[in-house]
Write a protein that binds this DNA or RNA. Structure first.
Lengths: 295, 295
DNA sequence: TCGTGCGATACCTTTTGGGTATCAGACAAC
DNA sequence: GTTGTCTGATACCCAAAAGGTATCGCACGA
């Protein structure tokens, strides 16, 4: 059974005239007659009653007409829907990001993507860098937003933003009154850093900054993620060094301050597997590139 | 878009292996690869992710798989249903018959057809010969059961049965006591005959019998159909001459008697248009032929 | 590093589909 | 009745498409 035959059949069934149907189908009449004859032979059924000058559908033809209409409609729907998903206009992307990204440009990027592709479903989750790396490699996620980035040759990457580091201090800290704090003055403080595992991690970046400033923090508290670290700061366990964007969201018990001292800053980078050419993912990376350029 | 391609695509989508899919489809692997590639090109969409050794469906591929399954199922259903109707195993026949046929072999014939083709819908109606002829020619009906038959070269016909004529007498008639009545003794009676129009009709057949017996009925009442004639007999208006089979159904106020005299009998004949080769109709004629032979 | 497995490509053959010319039958007008 | 016209079917040819075999290229595992 050929698909084209059904289309031909429908044209003849509607025109009830081979010549006109052929014109409508933009073809000559003889091949059309032959195709209908083939269809009839294939079904072993008479579809048209040709005994009069005006042809008419047989009962079997009428039934086939109903079915053919539905089948062609479905086919068209399948065609369009597949193309839509194939072009990335619909479907699903699984995105994971580091906890500290939830305050900065990422939410805006996601809103922007949503406005371009409202029919693409986004499955969001938070992970630390190591988990992001594993999830991306094992294809559990499609997009990883890491800080500052994941080292892997298998990934395609787009820099989302660079930002400076600032201090997150308990609001009862003796430094909280000052508008500017020297990093070296904090040598006697407890630093709350993350993640605990695996090392080296962002915690080591901060410890490296301290070392460069010539001190080692008097106390060190390691948490599994950014959210836990900020919680510890808010209850006065110690202070933390965090990306600037985090400071834009106020949190009870925590105040943010810039500091004087070595500030290499940090970055957010969006990653995808190089071999994941899914149009949804490609589109997300494109939007990211344009978005980063604009901000 | 070709149907074959969808079938091929489904095989590959299920096997996730071109070689195995090709084996299952009983073809070589290269043309299968090409067909899938053509399908992808046609949709402008990647259906399989071939970046790993094990191929996998893309999102678009998964969507197309759903649709393709449904489309092929529908196609199969269309195929089967059309064949069924095309073979006469389902569908509809419009049958009309003379009123006097509803007591004889016709109901049994119809039951017999029903048992052979339970899924064929029968639309039944009663008409006189002239109406049957017109309805059959104008394709308002497919089958006409007439008495004794319709004269038209355009009809295919099967003799259903021959039968003798008998008298239908009012039960208060002076003849109703006799087991046998001479036709010539009825010359002074009123004959109730049918149909009134158009002439000549069955009424004229009966009048011809009287003429051959050498008399003309004293009274003549013409009705439009058999049912009305029997009703008039039952209320004592006169007597009628009817097919033998009618006598098998008793009716209050009417008794049936054979008669002595010229009895050419009558027949029931089943007609269809010669150019109506609808399988349902052909099957009905076949059943009629076998049925008539058996009885 | 080399084999092995798998999909893609090259190239040929067969099948199918479409085109033009023409036939055959039905219907209408004269 | 005869003839012209309309319509679907048939004959025949050519182009396009689909299938087959041989082989390539690439990735993965030993």
């Amino acid at each position: 059974m050929e698909f084209k035959r059904l289309k031909y059949f429908l044209a003849v069934a509607e025109e009830l005239h081979f010549g006109r149907a052929a014109t409508r189908l933009d073809m000559a009449q003889p091949p059309l007659s032959r195709q209908i004859a083939t269809l009839e032979a294939e079904l072993g059924v008479q579809l048209f009653d040709r005994s009069r000058s005006q042809i008419r559908l047989t009962q079997a033809g009428a039934v086939l007409q109903d079915h053919a209409r539905q089948i062609l409609d479905r086919l068209d729907a399948a065609y369009r829907e597949t193309k839509l998903i194939g072009s990335g206009g619909a479907g699903r992307i699984r995105i994971a990001f580091v906890g500290s990204a939830s305050h900065g440009l990422l939410p805006t990027l996601i809103k922007s993507f949503r406005s371009f592709y409202p029919d693409v479903e986004l499955a969001l989750s938070a992970m630390n860098n190591a988990e992001l790396q594993h999830a991306l490699v094992s294809r559990e996620i499609d997009i990883a937003v890491a800080r500052p980035e994941l080292k892997d040759e298998e990934f395609r990457r787009e820099l989302l933003c660079r930002e400076r580091l600032i201090l997150a201090l308990p609001d009862n800290s003796r430094f909280s009154g000052q508008s500017e704090v020297r990093l070296t003055d904090l040598a006697d403080q407890t630093f709350v850093l993350y993640p605990r595992r695996p090392r080296p991690s962002y915690a080591d970046v901060v410890l490296g900054i301290c070392e460069r400033e010539g001190f080692k923090p008097a106390g060190l508290e390691l948490t599994q993620d950014f959210q836990s670290a900020i919680s510890l700061v808010s209850v006065g366990v110690g202070l933390s060094v965090v990306p600037e964007s985090v400071g834009r969201t106020q949190r009870p018990g925590v105040i943010y301050r810039p500091y004087v001292g070595y500030n290499p800053g940090t970055a957010l980078t969006v990653h995808a597997r190089l071999d994941n050419r899914a149009p949804q993912v490609m589109n997300f990376m494109d939007i990211t590139r344009k978005f980063a350029r604009k901000h």
